[in-house]
Design a binder for these strands. Structure first.
Length: 130
DNA sequence: CATATGACGTCCT
DNA sequence: GAGGACGCCATAT
C-alpha cells in the first residue's frame, strides 16, 4: 500500500490569481459536515477520512474552528465522548444544550451521555449501512 | 524552513 | 464501560 504519500499540503494549484484560500482541506471538511443529514452524527475521524485526511481527525476539528459557526459541528462528535466543541468543554451548559439539540433531531444518548454511533453514526455513501 | 499548537483517535488501566 | 496518557497529521506562527 502507499501509506501516506505526501499528504502534506496538497499544494493549491496557482492557476492565475490565488485568492488566498483558507486551505482546500477546510472547504472539503465543511462540505462533509454539511452533508451530514439531520438526526445523524459523525465522528471526527470519519469526517477526516471522508475529507481525504485519514488519521487527521484533530485537524478536522481545528479546521472547523476556523470555519466558525457556519458549520453544524453539533452533529460532529468524538468517538468516545460527545465532547464536541472546545468551548463546549469549558461550558458544560453548552454541552447539555447540544445534547438536547441532537435529541431534538432524534439522536439517542446513552445513560452516561454518550451517543450510540452504532445506530446514529453516519457514514459516507461508500459504506452506507442502510 | 522548523517549532508549537490542537474542536481527536487508539491503547492501556 | 469509563477515564487517562501517548501519538498522528495539518495548520498556524
Amino acid at each position: 500500500m502507499k501509506r501516506r504519500a505526501k499528504r502534506t499540503t496538497p499544494a493549491p494549484k496557482k492557476g492565475r490569481l490565488k485568492v488566498s484560500p483558507p486551505s482546500p482541506s477546510y472547504e472539503r471538511i465543511r462540505q462533509v459536515v454539511l452533508k451530514i443529514p439531520r438526526g445523524r452524527v459523525m465522528t471526527y475521524g470519519d469526517v477526516a477520512q471522508a475529507a481525504g485526511m485519514p488519521g487527521a481527525a484533530r485537524q478536522v476539528g481545528y479546521a472547523m474552528h476556523s470555519l466558525g459557526k457556519r458549520v453544524p459541528w453539533q452533529r460532529v462528535l468524538g468517538r468516545k465522548n460527545p465532547r464536541s466543541g472546545h468551548s463546549t468543554i469549558n461550558d458544560p451548559q453548552a454541552r447539555a444544550r447540544q445534547q438536547q439539540l441532537l435529541e431534538s433531531e432524534g439522536v439517542r444518548f446513552s445513560a452516561s451521555g454518550s451517543v450510540d454511533l452504532t445506530a446514529f453514526g453516519w457514514v459516507p455513501r461508500a459504506k452506507r449501512k442502510k
